[in-house]
Design a protein around this nucleic acid. Structure first.
Length: 351
DNA sequence: AAGCGATCCAACCGCGCCCCG
DNA sequence: ACGGGGCGCGGTTGGATCGCT
């Protein structure tokens, strides 16, 4: 028994939207809203379209303040930071980028950023030594990598390790089961071992913020964020830490963040930011691309290990939570990062 | 100029979750 | 408590465009 179709497939138009359809949809929604019923909307307007198609068209194209193309370096950074820490939660990532849609970011990641990070330029580009041609579609300088060297080996390793971490189906099992850990080079294993000690302290510092300030006076959000490694249940999240981490991503050395999260966590995220800069913009100042400074490598893993924890609770919690950040009526003209976490915070256990 | 492969991106699809009757 | 309808999300598809030969 299959799922009932959301609309009469035989009587709906598919494919690209015409300007007339766009105009009809836009005019109606601007005047009346969706009436909280996308399915019924096309009939009201007289469009032979599926309600879901109307929703998608509005969200991704017709909605006010939508930006297309021309991703900035800062946006690249945010996308990559969040992708590495939370994976392909495009709606969440989009919530951090005002005017961007999840679809846009997803496409941008799949078609450009991922390739850029993985250095999987087609062979002709990799091998070319003197060509000056480049992709004319790259509207901003950061994407134009025609003169950008291929990523260093270690940078690639970093990313690949992240990918391996991300690919584990069950982060908790992964976390508790060394057999599932990616194969590491001896040096990397040593680094990780060192980090296990370091990370305990870091975690302790970061995990201390278990109680969130409440929007409701007298009501506190108690977050069951930190669980011992042998526990398999995480039923809440630390929104403060997420916010701190993202603030650190966005603002670099924020004094408040420094003060709140002590040295370990903040260093980790800011170092991670530097690593991302390296990956994205090839800012390999201080060491040659092929011979990475072992300390830099260490910092990178430190950051990754710290982020791994973030990843765990993100992955776990967001599996069971639906995001509403991109719904047309909740997004407003600008998606504020604070609002994003508030949205999610509201969905979590209030004890 | 034509053919062909690569790339981009708008749109579709199906699944899971939530809400409401 | 339960089931159906609707929404939102992430993954995928396919047509359009670009660039190379």
């Amino acid at each position: 028994m299959g799922r009932a179709p959301c609309c009469d497939k035989a009587n709906v138009k598919k494919g690209p939207w015409s300007p007339e359809e766009d105009e009809k949809l836009k005019a109606y929604i601007e005047k009346y809203g969706t009436g909280n019923n996308w399915i019924a909307l096309p009939q009201k307007i007289g469009l032979k379209r599926c309600g879901k198609s109307c929703r998608l068209r509005w969200l991704n194209y017709l909605r006010p303040n939508i930006k297309h193309g021309g991703f900035s370096e800062e946006e690249d950074n945010i996308i990559c930071s969040l992708y590495i820490s939370i994976g392909s939660r495009w709606s969440i990532i989009a919530a951090q980028l005002p005017g961007r849609t999840d679809n846009d970011i997803k496409n941008y990641w799949n078609t450009r950023l991922k390739k850029k990070l993985l250095g999987r330029r087609k062979q002709s580009n990799v091998n070319r030594l003197s060509s000056t041609s480049h992709d004319p579609k790259d509207e901003n300088g950061s994407l134009d990598d025609s003169c950008e060297p291929v990523l260093s080996n270690s940078a690639l390793e970093r990313l690949q390790l992240h990918m391996q971490l991300q690919s584990c189906q069950n982060p908790l099992s992964f976390y508790n089961n060394p057999a599932l850990w990616p194969k590491l080079q001896p040096l990397q294993e040593k680094l990780i071992q060192s980090l296990q000690f370091l990370n305990e302290n870091t975690n302790y510092t970061l995990m201390q913020q278990h109680v969130l300030p409440s929007t409701q006076p007298g009501q506190e959000h108690t977050i069951d964020f930190y669980e011992p490694p042998n526990t398999s249940v995480i039923d809440g999240l630390n929104i403060d830490e997420l916010e701190n981490s993202l603030n650190a991503f966005n603002a670099g050395s924020n004094p408040d963040v420094m003060e709140q999260s002590n040295n370990g966590g903040t260093q980790a995220v800011s170092t991670f930011q530097a690593d991302l800069d390296d990956l994205l913009h090839n800012k390999t100042i201080g060491f040659p691309p092929q011979e990475e400074d072992p300390i830099a490598e260490f910092d990178c893993f430190k950051a990754m290990d710290s982020l791994k924890d973030s990843m765990i609770w993100w992955s776990t919690d967001f599996e069971s939570k639906s995001a509403s950040t991109n719904s047309w009526d909740s997004s407003g003209p600008v998606l504020q990062s604070h609002g994003m976490y508030q949205d999610y915070g509201l969905g979590y256990n209030v004890k």
